[in-house]
């Protein structure tokens, strides 16, 4: 089958436009990936200070990272918090987006703007405001307070991606299900939910990363022995500026990447592109 196809395929003439396009793409990609490459170089470089060019390759900073309980505990805490934020913001953000798109609420555009507002508010203010309100209410700074704070800044991402899907949603599909005998609840679970899921989960991935990387909101809300990874890294940097920071960054990047990949596998984020 393929052999004759290949023989009859026309030779592509050299196309300057296409070459320029590919070069540009290549450059952009290099621009985006260069910082990661630099961090990796620092993480593998054995000297206790950041030296350029790197003098060798060693895993000592990765070893230090994984052998330091402060780092590993913070990493686990950050993962756990980001996981909770993922779940919470999917549920809250998905519900909000549905209400905004479908609810026939009065002042819908105002509400949309309102729900998006944490995206516009400097996160450090969100953190400070929550810190003060928690202390005022007298609940201290429990982990769930931190989760709540992260959720607050993460939910708009889910609302956004879900609204985008709902915007292009053909409601006839839901009507078709209803005529076929599906009650409104069944329509929601059989049709609406599966179809908006890619949007919700794409937002969820953002939410996860927003939480996992969150520094300004966490700054005021972490408690002693309950510091998230970005906060621990920041404080570590003030006293020991060595490759462990770079190793931690690499570990974070890889973890975030694997979460995205796993979610992609599980629910097919690609479908989002198709919708």
């Amino acid at each position: 089958m393929s052999a004759p196809l290949q023989t009859i395929r026309n030779k592509q003439p050299f196309d300057a436009g296409r070459a320029a396009y590919l070069t540009l793409n290549g450059l952009l990609l290099a621009f985006l990936l260069a910082p990661i490459a630099i961090v990796l170089a620092f993480a593998l470089n054995p000297t206790p200070y950041i030296s350029f060019p790197p003098v060798g390759v060693s895993l000592r900073w990765f070893e230090k990272f994984f052998r330091t309980p402060e780092f590993t505990n913070a990493l686990l805490l950050s993962l756990w918090i980001a996981g909770c934020v993922l779940v919470l913001s999917i549920v809250i953000g998905g519900a909000c987006a549905l209400a905004l798109a479908r609810g026939n609420l009065p002042g819908r555009s105002f509400l949309t703007a309102f729900f998006m507002s944490p995206l516009m508010l400097p996160a450090i203010l969100t953190g400070l405001a929550l810190f003060q309100s928690y202390l005022l209410v007298g609940i201290g700074r429990p982990v769930w307070g931190l989760i709540l704070a992260h959720t607050l800044v993460a939910v708009p991402y889910v609302i956004r991606t879900t609204l985008a899907v709902l915007h292009n949603f053909d409601r006839r599909i839901e009507e078709a299900a209803a005529v076929l005998g599906a009650s409104p609840t069944r329509v929601f679970f059989e049709v609406t939910l599966p179809l908006i899921r890619p949007g919700v989960f794409a937002g969820g991935v953002f939410a996860f990363i927003v939480s996992f990387d969150q520094f300004p909101v966490s700054l005021f809300l972490v408690v002693p022995k309950g510091e998230t990874l970005p906060v621990v890294l920041f404080n570590y940097m003030k006293f020991d500026l060595d490759g462990a920071i770079a190793a931690a960054s690499m570990v974070s990047i890889l973890l975030a990447l694997s979460v995205v990949l796993v979610l992609e596998r599980l629910i097919g984020l690609k479908a989002y592109v198709k919708l």
Binding site: D170, E175, A176, V179, A182, S183, V191, P194
Partner: peptide, 19 residues
Amino acid sequence: PVHKRDMGMVFQSYALFPH
């Protein structure tokens, strides 16, 4: 309500379940 009417319907856009 719609889902209790026991009818068939064909839409112009077909409205098939894409998933």
